[in-house]
């Protein structure tokens, strides 16, 4: 397991310098997904890569202190909710599923602008869902087991 932390000043310093730039680049990829190559999926994966870099350099405690497993599940559900919510909102406004042109009625902008904003919202939802789901997979494969096993241990330890 990757639970043992080997303190290495060079690795930790390089990680501390690199992680903000990786995350800014991931946000750039998500925000420009409808203009240029990239999008929600790629940006979410790059965000996950930055979290995995913290995981490798500082151990599991440093990364689960920022995003624990419960928050990861909530973020993944929130991403799917944003994606499906925008689609269903277009359905409620009288169009097809993910028909962004209908969003112009409630956003108060022109139809091309509404399409652009709708795609941006969907990219943000996809990025959140991919980031949280991949982070959860990495924690399950490379991290130590989840907490509930240790909660019942004090009861069994009382028995001789």
């Amino acid at each position: 397991m990757l639970t043992t932390v080997y303190e290495n000043l060079i690795v930790q310093t390089v990680c501390r310098i690199m992680v903000p730039f990786i995350q800014i680049y991931a946000l750039y990829v998500i925000a420009h997904g409808h203009y240029s190559p990239g999008g929600g999926f790629q940006g979410g994966v790059i965000l996950t890569a930055s979290l995995a870099l913290i995981f490798l350099a500082f151990g599991q405690g440093a990364v689960t202190r920022r995003i624990n497993r419960r928050l990861a599940v909530i973020l993944a559900s929130a991403g799917v909710f944003i994606y499906a919510g925008i689609g269903l909102l277009c359905l409620l406004l009288g169009g097809n599923f993910l028909d962004y042109a209908q969003l112009a009625k409630i956003l108060g902008v022109t139809i091309p602008r509404a399409r652009s904003l709708g795609i941006l919202g969907v990219e943000v939802g996809v990025g959140l869902a991919v980031m949280a789901a991949m982070y959860s997979i990495i924690l399950d494969i490379a991290g130590s087991p989840a907490k509930p096993e240790t909660k019942s241990r004090p009861i069994s330890e009382n028995k001789p």
Partner: peptide, 16 residues
């Protein structure tokens, strides 16, 4: 993004 970073990390975790 996927195959070079995340897949390598997952494979290394499985090997460990």
């Amino acid at each position: 993004a996927v195959a070079t970073s995340v897949c390598t990390i997952l494979f290394v975790g499985a090997i460990i």
